Amino acid sequence: MPSIYENRFFTVMAVFEVAPQQQQELIDGIADQVEEHIKKFPGFVSASFHASDDGRKVVNYAQWHSKESWQKAPQAPNSDKAKAAIEGVIKRCEAKSVSGDSFSFRVARVVENEL
């Protein structure tokens, strides 16, 4: 479950454009690889997938314990397999990365409603 706190986790966001009929396939395909491989990588916290109402965009919001753990992810076991599988899903769904690469962020401020 994602936890959003100021200066607690390192956040990476990737934005994709996709045909509406392939939006869910893109989400499921990437999420399956995260479930199978990436969630086992040291420092991984969570991945959330956001689907635009028009069906044309997907945002992947991923949290890591630190920037260093995210940068070391390509050295983790099965990282090549996961990367190749994710690239295959993106190609099969004819999705385009809006950002070219992922954007990285830190949570600078959070405003919450008290429940």
Rank of each mutant, 00 (worst) to 15 (best):
M13Y: 02
V107C: 12
V18S: 01
K91T: 13
V15F: 04
A51I: 04
Y61C: 10
A14F: 06
H50R: 09
K40H: 14
I86P: 00
S52Y: 06
R106K: 09
E112Q: 14
F10D: 00
C93W: 06
E68W: 05
F41C: 00
G29H: 05
E35F: 05
E68M: 10
A73F: 02
S104L: 02
S52K: 06
N113E: 15
P42Q: 09
S69Y: 10
M1N: 13
K81Q: 14
R56P: 07
E6H: 02
A51M: 06
S102Y: 12
D80N: 15
P74W: 06
S79K: 09
M1K: 12
A84P: 02
E114M: 13
P2E: 13
Q63E: 14
A95I: 09
H50F: 12
K67R: 15
I38Q: 00
R106P: 00
A14P: 01
Q75C: 02
Q23E: 10
F41I: 01
S97N: 13
D101M: 10
Q75V: 02
K81G: 04
M1Y: 06
E6R: 10
G55N: 01
N60S: 14
V58L: 02
G43D: 01
Q23D: 06
P42L: 03
W64F: 09
N78P: 01
K40R: 15
P77S: 12
V111K: 08
E35I: 03
T11I: 15
K40E: 12
V15R: 06
D53H: 06
V111E: 15
G29S: 09
I38R: 07
F41S: 01
A47M: 10
Y5P: 00
R92M: 11
S97Y: 05
E114S: 13
R56F: 04
S97V: 06
D53E: 13
P20Y: 11
M13Q: 05
Q22I: 03
N60A: 15
A31E: 11
K91E: 12
N7I: 01
I38P: 00
R106C: 02
S46F: 12
G100L: 10
F44R: 02
V34P: 00
A84F: 05
E68N: 09
A31W: 07
K39H: 08
E6M: 07
I30E: 02
M1A: 14
K40A: 11
A108E: 11
A14W: 01
E112G: 08
F105W: 12
M1Q: 12
A108P: 00
I27V: 15
I90T: 04
F49V: 06
Q33F: 00
D54Y: 04
P2N: 08
F103T: 07
L26R: 05
A82M: 10
A19R: 08
H50Q: 14
K81W: 04
A76P: 00
F49E: 04
G43H: 02
T11N: 08
Y61D: 11
F16T: 02
E17M: 07
K57H: 13
Q24I: 07
K39N: 13
